[in-house]
Design a protein around this nucleic acid. Structure first.
Lengths: 180, 180, 180, 180
DNA sequence: GATGAATGAGCATTCATTCAT
DNA sequence: AATGAATGAATGCTCATTCAT
């Protein structure tokens, strides 16, 4: 982010660097704008659930959503990763990402709770910790986002399977059904 | 990385910035030096196995190693994460990290293969893909490395459990023992 | 003057900065406009002499005029001072101020000459040099124009007294008439 | 002052603009440096009184000092004038000039008081107001400092005469009535 | 080996000015 | 007549790097 040059951005967009400053009066403001755009994008462009679905379906949708995004707009994930790194130094960015993360965690926790209520997920599942675990794992994907999309896809698939195994596991007898 | 100031580094070490340039003729060279140091550090400071151990022990050691490092020198992990991001732009860094990753993956694969040979890990395990999965997951931890070490520890513990579940799973009968 | 921002001027007037450029196509032109306004102002807003007056009265009016202006529109004097400084670099401004000064000096000289002809001012008075002296002294007042109006008023009063003493002095016998 | 370009200063001195920043890390610091230099200069380079002198001599020395300075380093006076203008906006500069002025006024007051004690200056002289008057008058000279040194010299001479007349005046009986 | 001084290339930002509407 | 959008030319300042000592 410190390597971001406003001139380069302006050039890439095809405008004068002063014009860029006309819209984003500060480099900081520019980055904020990107973050806000990204947050809207991540919040809105979810796969719309066509019908009421089971918690397991929703959980799977979570991974498939990311697969789609990884294929169609990998840059978003890359930028998100860079923002996270920048967040270590910039409390402003950190704040926005924290807000984004809380929304994400809340969503995951509600899906997991629904699964438990349905009697499909194991009842002793620590939903909040599991949500945190999933988020951490998915964040790790961001690092390879740039190259080797094939291997990345495989990793994502295995991650989904592993997660299903984790949330279903101790409800022992039915577990076999999850195999693909 | 682009936010790194050679003068600041020199000040922190207590030498003149010109002196720093005497040893590392370029900012690039300085970063290279850090990477090399980090690679040595990561390769050497492993928990020394006192006795011949089972593959499962070795697998667990992998996670406990990271827990120790996370506690004792979290900066190393943070720098590693930043280097990974920088690697996206700097093929030089990318090359060194790739080399590091290959060593790591090779180690994990050998551990997993050993587990299969021992008859403890499920025989249909795709060892290379699993190694890749583990690496991706552990990389994800780097992001929170800065704050909330408590929550991070919990995530790491769950990650270990989840991984054990994954590598043992279909060798069904013995699986129960892994539960904590 | 170099610190003058056309946008700020436009904002203060409540119009768009482009609109300001419509009327004053250049910052330079804007300043010229101000100078012209100021010159008209200084020339017209003199205390109108209600009746034919003695040279001494006219001389005193000169000081009282400035006292009034200092009280009622000190900004004008301040701007005038700033313009004088700018005139050192901007021959355009210098020219206009020179023109203004010549008018002022001409007026003073004629007053002083009238006083001599009346037999009130000392006959050996170098009218042009005295006019120059008065102008220099009055210009000096501009510097404190911003703060401490009280002290400034006192200085102006003393300046008037000192000047009277100067123009009357050697015509010794008649000097007593100056008493207020 | 807002028209001051650090690059231009550097060019004039014959160094790189970055080198200038090496010594004066800020434009502000550069100006401060100039002010400090000027203050030292004004304080130290006074005509050294070779022998104990009368108050009238000291008063005359005050004017002759300025004449010398006006001839030998007129730039100093010009800069001083510009600083005074800048002081209207910059409290930092204003503070330093105020300090300088206080020193100057103190010196003048002590000279005037000495003259009264000697019985040479009129005993009803308001020394502080007179000092203020002198300072204001001398400041006015700064404006013409740039051009026409000949006329300026004449003005300065008349100013000295006028001031002497002012401080000595009451050596005549009728004058008392003009004092307020 | 070590360092204070110096510098070129570059950076975000400012600002008077232009232009299409 | 009025203005929002756009821009070129600075401007103060930073920083990795060089160099003489």
């Amino acid at each position: 982010m410190e390597g971001l040059r406003t001139r380069e951005v302006a050039d890439r967009v095809g405008i004068n660097s002063a014009t860029l400053h006309y819209y984003f009066s500060t480099k900081e403001a520019l980055i904020q704008g990107v973050v806000e755009y990204l947050m809207r994008e991540l919040r809105n462009n979810r796969t719309k659930p066509v019908a009421p679905r089971s918690a397991l379906d929703l959980l799977r949708a979570e991974f498939s959503d990311i697969r789609v995004r990884l294929r169609e707009c990998p840059d978003q994930l890359i930028v998100l990763t860079e923002l996270a790194v920048r967040g270590w130094r910039d409390p402003n960015i950190a704040g926005m990402l924290k807000y984004l993360d809380e929304g994400w965690r809340g969503h995951l926790v509600s899906v997991l709770n629904a699964g438990i209520k349905e009697g499909v997920f194991r009842s002793d599942l620590d939903t909040k910790a599991t949500a945190e675990l999933m988020m951490s794992q998915l964040r790790g994907l961001g690092f390879q986002g740039k190259f080797e999309p094939g291997r990345l896809d495989e990793t994502l698939r295995n991650l989904a399977l592993q997660t299903e195994l984790w949330v279903l596991s101790r409800s022992t007898p039915g577990r076999k059904r999850i195999s693909r």
